[in-house]
Nucleic acid binder design. Structure first.
Length: 151
DNA sequence: GCCAACGTTGGC
DNA sequence: GCCAACGTTGGC
């Protein structure tokens, strides 16, 4: 079982939306490094939900991989903003996961707080200028986050 | 709203 | 294959 962190802007899709929906397809990732991390996820993996582009940004909750390695349906939809004309059903380019809501943490962990605890090598979301939206979280780091987030 | 970081595109 | 131009992310 592995730990991950994924970003979303709460204005687009936040943890409250996932709580309401219970599960969602994590669609729209169009970065190869992020996609490769998505491809290596397995059912049962735990994913920290990070709110980006908000004040303040930080980790708000936890989700779990329910289904791994599915084709992102938005790549086939010509009306979708994530449509990829180079992708076909026979040779899709973008895979993702279905995630399930687990919890909203009692303690919000702001980016500032994360920076106080971790260096960029431990948790790359604290690296300045980091734009990757999907990243692995080492086991020890994940345990520390869970401890702090649960108060 | 600004701008640093950085991935992608396209001319050569 | 290089790299300038461009577009996007995301913190501030």
């Amino acid at each position: 079982m592995n730990y991950w962190l994924m970003k979303s802007e709460p204005d687009a899709y936040g943890i409250e939306d996932l709580k309401r929906d219970r599960t969602t397809v994590w669609d729209g990732v169009r970065n190869y490094q992020a996609r490769n991390f998505l491809r290596s996820m397995a059912p049962g993996d735990l994913v920290f939900f990070y709110h980006s582009n908000t004040t303040p940004p930080g980790i708000v909750g936890l989700m779990k991989v329910a289904e791994a390695n599915i084709d992102d349906p938005t790549q086939f939809d010509a009306k979708n903003k994530y449509y990829d004309p180079k992708a076909t059903k026979e040779s899709p380019r973008w895979q993702t996961v279905v995630v399930a809501f687990v919890e909203i943490f009692p303690q919000f962990l702001s980016l500032d707080a994360l920076r106080e605890t971790f260096n960029p090598n431990e948790l790359s979301v604290v690296r300045q200028g980091n734009r990757l939206s999907v990243m692995p979280v080492p086991e020890e780091v994940a345990q520390t986050i869970l401890k702090q987030a649960k108060g």
